[in-house]
Amino acid sequence: MTTTRTLGRSGIEVGALGMGCWAIGGPLWGDGGQPFGWGEVDDDESVRTVHAALDLGVTLFDTASNYGAGHSERVLGRALAGRRDRAVIATKFGNRADEATRRWTGTDPSPDYAVSSLEESLRRLGTDHVDLYQLHINDLPVPAALDLVGTLEDLVAQGKIRAYGWSTDDPASAEAFAAAGPHCAAIQHDQSVLRDNARMLAVCDAADVAALNRGPLAMGLLTGATRAVGRDDVRGMAPEWLVWFTDGRPTPQWAARVEGIRAALTADGRTLAQGALGWLLARSPRTVPIPGCRTVAQAEENFDTLALGPLPEDAFAEVERLMADLRPVPAEG
């Protein structure tokens, strides 16, 4: 059973599942009191969670400069102290945040900020290089993204990053960016059993880059969670793009879809979350799902999927059959 994957043409090998580190950043606030984090978090438990993930075969840890206004990077750096050689660190740039107030302060797509943000990330992470450095402005116009490629290639040449990518959900943007420089290794995009993105996977195939799956558990909906979350959690005041939750609870129509495929995802004894992650591993050899975790129990459940492997062919086919009439038809263009 293959439990590792390669980040596209970079040659960087990672565990087939990575750990998303947004939640361990704790609170972050935007304009009007909009939460951009997952509420209060126990840093000691976060460190134990990273260690558990490593022990279960996870090597890729995905964070960002603005998760918790830098707190996620600090906690990850603490957790990987003495273990850096076992980890592939992915972080992101482009969003500014104030560490003192835990507030998001806007975006900055400039090449100068890409350089200064990296230096700050390296200090917080306690390392001399980042393995994957990703643009974190989803809808940035392509010309502005392409203006960054020369700077990113320079950072590769300096040994400060090994590869780079873009966190975007637009296939055309991803295609242009992946073609612009030889060290682009990954596109991070929304992908789950509830929201397949065949066009993006095709782009990743054509460009020979990895597909890092953001939101593989639909922000927790695919764990079967039903409890209400607080107003300091991004799901408690869900922004427009976050369709899975309404007023802190699962959105009824999406929860119904989960129930419609639960039996197929769990037919071989997996939990719902393990079935959803197994579906992604079966979907494409390029996928690297990065479920978020902030407790050891969550890490153990999610990353035991590495031992279970991709969803069996018959179960995958049954999920596809069930979803055929449920999955929204993608907009043209």
Score class of each variant (00 low, 15 high):
146 L>F: 03
173 S>F: 00
178 A>C: 06
153 E>K: 03
162 R>F: 01
156 V>C: 06
172 A>I: 02
157 A>W: 02
192 S>G: 05
144 A>L: 13
184 C>E: 08
167 S>G: 10
192 S>F: 10
189 H>W: 09
144 A>Q: 15
158 Q>W: 00
181 G>W: 05
150 G>I: 11
170 D>E: 13
142 V>F: 04
166 W>N: 06
167 S>A: 13
180 A>L: 08
197 N>H: 12
187 I>K: 03
177 F>N: 02
173 S>Q: 10
161 I>H: 08
177 F>V: 15
178 A>L: 05
167 S>Y: 05
190 D>S: 15
192 S>C: 07
195 R>Q: 12
193 V>A: 14
164 Y>H: 12
182 P>M: 09
151 T>A: 12
143 P>E: 01
197 N>M: 10
148 L>K: 01
151 T>I: 10
193 V>L: 13
168 T>G: 09
157 A>D: 13
156 V>S: 01
194 L>A: 04
194 L>D: 06
148 L>R: 05
196 D>F: 12
169 D>R: 05
165 G>F: 03
151 T>R: 15
163 A>K: 06
171 P>I: 02
155 L>W: 12
142 V>D: 06
176 A>N: 07
190 D>Q: 14
143 P>R: 01
182 P>R: 09
145 A>W: 00
149 V>T: 07
146 L>W: 07
146 L>A: 13
189 H>D: 07
146 L>D: 11
162 R>K: 14
173 S>W: 02
180 A>C: 02
168 T>H: 10
182 P>K: 10
178 A>N: 01
197 N>T: 00
189 H>E: 05
169 D>G: 15
191 Q>G: 06
